[in-house]
Simulated assay, not measured.
Amino acid sequence: MNSQLHELIGLVLRHAEWAYAAVFLAAFLEAIPLLGSLIPGSTIIVALAALVPGGGLQLTPVLAAAVIGAILGDGLGYWIGHTKQRAVLSAWPMSGYPVLIAQSEALFDRYGAFAVIFARFIAPVRAIVPMIAGVLGMPPWRFFPLNVIAILFWAPAHVLPGVLAGSAAEQWGMKIEHYGLPLAGGIIAVGCIGWAVYHWRNRSLA
């Protein structure tokens, strides 16, 4: 097992671009309507960021990958809502999530355009609000600046905890070969458990 861990950590160290691509995809897919509620993208980002202090990854590319992925994912969701309008809400698969749509629209009723910022930090509606913004007719010149501002806060809020966890492990005298995958795997496992509990509760209440 130890040799396998060393090999996998070595793979990340030799091919860091794969890890950066994983951060990008996690941020991008988490922002896609419905996919965002199925993929624990934030957890993956935190886990991979834990490899930064040990030199496995660099902080700036990790942040850039998270920001770019989230902007493109949110932009795609907004474009779908902007072009399809309310027809997209009654079509499959969105038609199967009336509660999530209602929660997203309630955010706009309460906060107006600033719902774009607040929703970035609310996992259940994060992937839906950009599309709802397009459906409700928010103009691009208003949506994208607010969206980018939110993402510029969201990305460090997810990357830095992982960096701090990795840094703490380094200070305890652990090297990346020893803590990298166990720490990343633990973070992913906790995130997946939380994701499963959340969806189980939603189904129980439905």
Rank of each mutant, 00 (worst) to 15 (best):
P145F: 03
L25A: 10
S167R: 14
L181S: 09
F144T: 02
R110E: 14
A133W: 01
I71Q: 00
V159F: 10
G73E: 04
V62K: 07
M1I: 07
F121T: 11
A169I: 03
A22V: 14
L13Y: 08
G55S: 07
A31T: 08
K84G: 00
I71F: 05
L181R: 10
Y20R: 09
I187L: 13
L107A: 10
M131E: 02
N2H: 15
G137A: 12
L76R: 01
D109A: 15
R142D: 09
H199V: 08
N147F: 02
L146P: 08
I187F: 10
A22D: 03
G56D: 11
Y198F: 12
L25H: 01
V62M: 13
G56A: 11
I176N: 08
A70M: 07
I176W: 06
L160K: 05
I132Q: 08
I132M: 13
V125Q: 03
L59H: 09
H199S: 07
V163E: 03
L34H: 00
A196W: 10
W92Q: 14
V163K: 02
H82W: 01
L100Q: 15
I117D: 00
P53A: 14
Y111H: 15
A31S: 15
A19K: 02
I101H: 08
G81T: 12
S37E: 12
I187A: 03
W154C: 00
A115F: 06
R86M: 09
R110F: 11
D109H: 12
M1V: 07
R126F: 11
A127M: 06
G96V: 05
L164P: 01
L107N: 02
A113P: 07
H178P: 00
W172S: 14
V12E: 05
R201L: 14
P161M: 01
F24A: 04
N147A: 13
V125E: 01
V135S: 10
V129A: 04
I188L: 14
I176A: 11
L183D: 02
I122P: 04
P139G: 11
G36R: 00
H6Y: 12
P145K: 06
F121K: 10
I39K: 01
G69H: 03
V148N: 03
M174H: 13
D74P: 02
F144R: 02
F24T: 02
R126N: 13
H158G: 03
G75T: 05
W79L: 10
P139R: 15
S42H: 04
R120E: 07
S3L: 14
G180L: 05
A102Y: 01
A157T: 13
L34R: 04
V23C: 09
H6C: 07
V88I: 14
G166V: 05
G75N: 08
